[in-house]
Design a binder for these strands. Sequence first.
DNA 1: CTTAATTGCGAACGGTGATCGCAATTATCA
DNA 2: TGATAATTGCGATCACCGTTCGCAATTAAG
Lengths: 230, 230
Amino acid sequence: MPALDPTDLWRRPERSVVGPKPGHSRTGIATAALQIADQEGLAAVSIRRVAASVGSGAASLYRYVKSHDELVELMMDTVSSEYHLKPAAGGPQEQLLHLARQGRRLMRRHPWLAPLLLTRPSMGPNSLRYLEAALAALAKVDLPGPAKLQTVAMMTAITSAFVQNEMATTHPTEPEGVASGRGQYLTEALMAGDYPHLAAAMTGHTGEGQPDEQFTSIITNYLTGAGVPS
Amino acid sequence: MPALDPTDLWRRPERSVVGPKPGHSRTGIATAALQIADQEGLAAVSIRRVAASVGSGAASLYRYVKSHDELVELMMDTVSSEYHLKPAAGGPQEQLLHLARQGRRLMRRHPWLAPLLLTRPSMGPNSLRYLEAALAALAKVDLPGPAKLQTVAMMTAITSAFVQNEMATTHPTEPEGVASGRGQYLTEALMAGDYPHLAAAMTGHTGEGQPDEQFTSIITNYLTGAGVPS
DNA sequence: CTTAATTGCGAACGGTGATCGCAATTATCA
DNA sequence: TGATAATTGCGATCACCGTTCGCAATTAAG
């Protein structure tokens, strides 16, 4: 009997009890993949690329990870170990705000994370620890369970959106040739007089608040609206 | 001189003035791609697949669309033509709420849209028309231009997150074998007693509100918090 | 020492986005 | 009415992708 092991990454033991000892490890593979993703984006994280970076053949990676999706899952949970989950001082709102700040920090450090968190929530131990911490902050709040879950989900979603907005506006991700391809139509349409309100909004003076304060107020506003007391 | 045309999809004329008339059209290609995406997901929308669906060779598609990314851009803007942008009655908040509802409708109709809107905002004419309508609703609101832009962006982000949440919980996207692979660890960990707050939240009685009312209240709460008067 | 399981991995399969070159088509100009 | 120049359709091809298969090498248990 070929020892059918669980389909779930987190249930599967890293190393089986018999056979040659593996030349690599999950964390080694994960850190290699993380480095690639941080530097060249998630699209650069291919099985072959990670394998080469670790120093093994491409097919060997499948001894550690069942699919490319699982590799991403592993990356997400590995990066989730960077959370500082010490419960903050203050009421539920302050504690959740602290967790949201942690999320923002993580998404800024690893730009590939933000889109993923919305599409494909991670279910690994570290990710669940974060979720658990958030729910612990809501323990004494009088809200039905699913509502609490939704509140946390929306909070990270808002964080993700904020970070992506933030980095898109401040970080010139494009090579900036002359008028970098994309958006060329925009400028033309704006000068042609279509979208007058858009033109007005874009030429308007920049907002007065620092991004940190903006973020704080957005999260706080959402939480109070959702019924989370301070 | 080989008539270098703009790199921008929306600036490039659909058909040049000389040469044989194209056998296909952007809208034809777009609708074919849309159908595939709606039925089988965005991942199924490959150049070859769309070409076959339209009845042409794979390489021919590049006469209408410069890259796969541009195809997606085209899809996003094409689908944005389904918005009902008639200004609603009421103050800024009601008008924005109406637009948010439109967004939710669209994202539910085309599940592939929600993740894309967050990662890769569309800049086509129809998408810009939506943005323009939102900014028009904010015309008389005393907020700096960038703040208005951010407000609209956050609104659609919240909508996207809500829809994805909504469809993930109600729509069993997985084949549901026995304990469908993913989440097997979760149930085990829950029964083992880790994540007690999570366990409590998941076994709690379901929320009382209809999703539509939930959505309305979330958007409304956000808008009032952002300083948008009703 | 035998046995059974596991590891590493080269080779291969099917699919992907994208490019190139060429024959066929067609509007404009002489 | 040609002749010209640009454009279209597209087969062939390249590089890369995720994934599977089969096999030699390795190692722990009996």
